[in-house]
Nucleic acid binder design. Structure first.
Lengths: 228, 228
DNA sequence: CGATGGTATGACAGAATTGTGACAGCAGTA
DNA sequence: TACTGCTGTCACAATTCTGTCATACCATCG
């Protein structure tokens, strides 16, 4: 399922550059040149992320962001603000208006895509507040709780995200760096061995209910959550 | 296995710092102090990654990056730019000149190494994740597992690569040196008899499911994976 | 049949990888 | 301030993997 990104940008040159990079990375790009165009697209289909220029003809980007946050349907869609200003004051205002991240022009395509991925990933668990069940465990993101055959298990934030990722991606081996990217976020720099420690803490928490065997070590490759 | 990193940096102090961190992380560091020195090293042996200072005596780092991208041999070698400037404009130029990433001085060794690992990981030729089926076996690189008629088999790294190679090249005899080149890599130096041992270990792992007969010895020539 | 060259197997030490306990920094809180 | 829970890192222990032997085994050929 490729994410659909709505790009709201009045300058055709930048619009094209953004769309090119986005599609290049495997996402779909929908283009809008002003606030009205953006709403037209939004009414047609809700995007997974909105890339929004600060300066827009008519109503400004910040104003559009506010309206997006006010609307029931678009309240939870992540927004990345695109601005030429480097003033910190603007940054604050952009974020306070509801943006999840912001990028200053000129931007590097790599940085842009990194932020897009980061935001999409950050939002991903929030988007699916649904209870996940795998291997006899039941994980409820909304309640931040694990149910192991009636026994409730408490986990720290990192262990919770780790288990949530594993349960939503079972039977597949993930390397330490992949887990860092997926669970920690690829903008964070920590040692790969940190993963080992959190794997251990997770196993330790699952041990009393004998569910620790679900998390398997694949020597030389990484870890795997297996329901078998 | 250890990646060779060419460090092009004119300031001896920083050069030393970089080399220290790189070797500390298990990579090999080759040092060059200017563009000419860089080419000398490159002509001698192609590095796996180039760490390039923006400011270099003679021709600038960006210029060197351009020439590296223009050269057939070095076109695909990832480059990380090292710059003291925090100007966004420079950052763009650096990336557009063909750099894969950039770091601004002063940098933290941790971030430097994280970026190096990230770039190397991106460039690393990854084994196709496609599941291979042959002779009744099903091998899944993503799960790092073998499915033998419902029975799951776990293999060590070498045996796994060996079986993967056999299953993707069935019905054909491979000599020990060919297998060493294909499975171990053509730069490793190990005894040919080592292949025998790993063949045995692979057969041993497949024995409980009677799939060990798929791997046949061809006396005087080598081994063959036969689906019959 | 015995000799010969090639292959299978079991053992083993060193290397590589992972598990584990401890600790210090940090943010939030009473 | 002291306390608490969480995190990342480290050093060291435990485990698994690897390459190399020495030896046993086997097919082929004179």
């Amino acid at each position: 399922m490729t994410a659909n990104i709505l790009v709201v940008e009045d300058e055709p040159a930048i619009q094209e550059l953004l769309a090119f990079n986005i599609t290049q990375c495997g996402y779909r790009a929908t283009e809008a040149f002003d606030a009205d165009g953006a709403w037209t697209h939004i009414n047609h289909a809700l995007p997974d992320l909105i890339l929004l220029d600060w300066m827009l003809p008519g109503s400004s980007g910040v104003e559009l962001a506010r309206r997006l946050r006010a609307d029931q349907r678009t309240r939870n869609i992540p927004i990345i603000m695109l601005t030429a200003r480097t003033d910190e004051r603007d940054k604050i205002q952009g974020l306070e208006s509801g943006a999840d991240d912001y990028i200053t022009k000129p931007f590097s395509p790599r940085e842009l895509m990194a932020r897009i991925r980061a935001v999409l990933r950050r939002r991903a668990p929030q988007m699916s507040d649904e209870t996940v069940a795998a291997g006899g465990l039941e994980l409820s993101p909304a309640m931040h709780r694990i149910n192991a055959n009636g026994v409730l298990i408490d986990l720290g934030p990192t262990e919770f995200r780790l288990l949530h990722f594993f349960m939503t991606h079972p039977e597949r081996v993930y390397s330490r760096s992949q887990l860092l990217d997926q669970v920690w976020g690829d903008h964070v720099f920590v040692e790969e061995r940190t993963v080992d420690v959190h794997i251990r803490r997770l196993r330790q928490a699952l041990e009393p209910t004998n569910f620790d065997s679900l998390i398997q070590t694949v020597r030389g490759s990484g870890y795997r959550f297996s329901c078998n």
